[in-house]
Design a protein around this nucleic acid. Structure first.
Length: 475
RNA sequence: GCAGCUGUAGCUCAGAUGGUUAGAGCGCUUGGUUGUGGACCAAGAGGUCGGUGGUUCGAUCCCACCCAGCUGUACCA
């Protein structure tokens, strides 16, 4: 007989299984965030994972990536694609249901999005986003609300005030500067905006290089720059160096620039009364690389360091952001329809919060009732009912293993305890509760085999009426 | 996409400057106890040495190409 080729169990690169505590924490964060979004007056919306490609792809005004980066295929009729964010489906939804929606329309949405591109550390091809958007108003108060919402949300997720910062800026600032510098070519503008966006990674000198001729990275690879003159670069660099909002006014008298300033000061005015006013700060380098932003821009940054895969402490940076995008929905409706919104990268946020010991979730794996003898199942079920009706996660061992393997099973699942009920216990109407948690700790001092075989300190025998109380004590 | 580095067991890695049966630790399975996990002891399973071609009497080792991974960079809706 020829050997059959076995399948290799593995995931496509960029995808990840999630389990246990991580998932429990994720669900909890989602609950907190949803609740907070509701508190701010957003209503829930769910849309399908797939959209007609044209609706979420082609209309995007970003010429760099017309259809690349999405998963898609042709069905009987259309090309359809997995959504790559929640904003594009929102634009479709609002346009499609325009007449029946309250205006402005405020919705939040939680869901997976997919991007078909090269995965990196902490970057997957499927991940969860949570968005909140307000569609149908250009009131700056909506933008201000977004800032407070972001801050409040992070706060409610368990972060201290010194652990996050909402950075705010306005696209009109850089756009005004570009006007003043007589830079009109769209592609050049975009290159400049993206160079500015990289400040936190490549420092001032790096940005300067990217604005001018170009920059060589560590591996020796060369990135072509925007090709600005020295004077032009200087202007932009001096803008980036501004450290306080009040100094902005001296920089330029351009009309668009001034508009940006006045919108920003309105945001600061409006958020001043919130309890997060000190968490919302102007930062000139926040521009975001996306082309469609037209006004206010926000970015939620974590200020504490997290450990990477190698255990090194690194800056984590942004866990979310957003801004005003007044032209996006016009792609469907042909009339301008202003909108503003934020997006939280839940998996990134989760990764960071998971490392904060304070927020460790205690997920109680089930108490395991061991099966000595299948004939005693009625008794085991009685015990099970007692536990479950007291809201204690529990189960009867459901495999075929020996007692030893049953306990091993419970141990591997990190169960808090097993319940032993064999002939001895049955006769006396008791159960033996073996505290696995305690045993784990005790085992550290055990040196010889004799020591540990005789070590039964981590178990007690209790009357069946006391079972629930005894278990509750050790949870 | 571009650049640099790296591919040996499920994981982390060793190895011979080309020579019979390729190693360790961890993990996994089983036993040491047919009523006891975690320490300990023993046994066992697990590898086309990333792939293809070339050089050679002989390649996991040398060469070429390819593929994959990592890191940086670009892109990031």
């Amino acid at each position: 007989m020829s050997k059959q080729k076995k399948l290799k169990p593995e995931l496509a690169s960029g995808f990840k299984d999630r389990k246990g505590n991580e998932l429990i924490l994720k669900d909890r964060l989602i609950e907190i965030i949803k609740r907070n979004f509701q508190l701010y007056g957003f209503e829930p919306l769910e849309t399908p994972g797939f959209e007609i490609s044209e609706n979420i792809g082609k209309f995007l005004p970003d010429a760099d990536r017309p259809m690349a980066g999405v998963f898609g295929f042709k069905d009987q009729k259309d090309w359809i694609s997995l959504r790559y964010d929640l904003t594009a489906p929102l634009a479709r939804y609002v346009s499609e249901n325009f007449d029946s929606l309250s205006k402005p329309f405020k919705r939040y949405q939680v869901g997976s999005v997919w991007r078909n591109e090269k995965p990196g550390p902490g970057r997957y091809r499927e991940f969860t986003q949570i968005d909140a958007d307000i569609v149908g108003t250009n009131n700056v108060s909506a933008d201000a609300d977004m800032c407070v919402l972001l801050a409040d949300t992070l706060n409610k997720c368990g972060l201290d005030k010194n652990e996050y910062l909402i950075k705010v800026s306005n696209r009109k600032l850089i756009q005004g500067l570009l006007e003043e510098l007589k830079i009109t070519k769209d592609s050049k503008k975009l290159t400049i905006i993206r160079a500015v966006d990289k400040l936190d990674r490549v420092d001032i000198a790096g940005v300067n290089a990217l604005l001018g001729k170009g920059r060589k990275d560590k591996s020796g690879d060369f990135t072509k720059g925007a090709g600005l003159t020295e004077n032009q670069s200087e202007e932009i660099i001096s803008f980036l160096k501004i450290d306080s909002f009040s100094k902005l006014g001296n920089l330029s008298s351009n009309t668009t620039f001034k508009e940006g300033i006045s919108e920003l000061s309105e945001i600061f005015e409006l958020t001043k009364v919130s309890q997060f006013s000190d968490r919302i700060k102007f930062s000139p380098a926040v521009v975001r690389g996306i082309e469609y932003y037209t006004g206010a821009i926000f970015e939620a940054n974590l200020l504490f360091k997290v450990k990477n895969k190698k255990g090194e402490k690194v800056e984590f940076g942004s866990v979310g952001g957003g801004g005003r995008y007044d032209d996006l929905i016009a792609r469907f409706t042909q009339s301008k329809y202003p909108a503003t919104g934020v997006s939280i990268g839940l998996d990134r946020l989760l990764y960071a919060i998971d490392q904060k010991t304070i927020e460790k979730v205690k997920y109680n794996n089930p108490v395991v009732i061991c099966v000595f003898d299948k004939k005693q199942m009625p008794q085991y079920n009685k015990i099970l009912t007692l536990l479950r009706s007291s809201n204690i996660n529990s189960e009867i061992y459901c495999g075929d293993g020996s007692l030893k393997s049953q306990i091993k099973y419970a141990d591997k699942r990190n169960a808090p305890a097993v319940i032993l009920c064999g002939d001895n216990e049955l006769k006396s109407g008791t159960v033996t509760i073996k505290n696995l948690k305690l045993g784990r700790e005790a085992s550290e001092n055990v040196k010889t085999r004799e020591d540990w075989t005789s070590n039964k300190t981590a178990q007690i025998t209790a009357q069946i009426e006391d079972l629930v109380n005894e278990i509750k004590k050790l949870l």
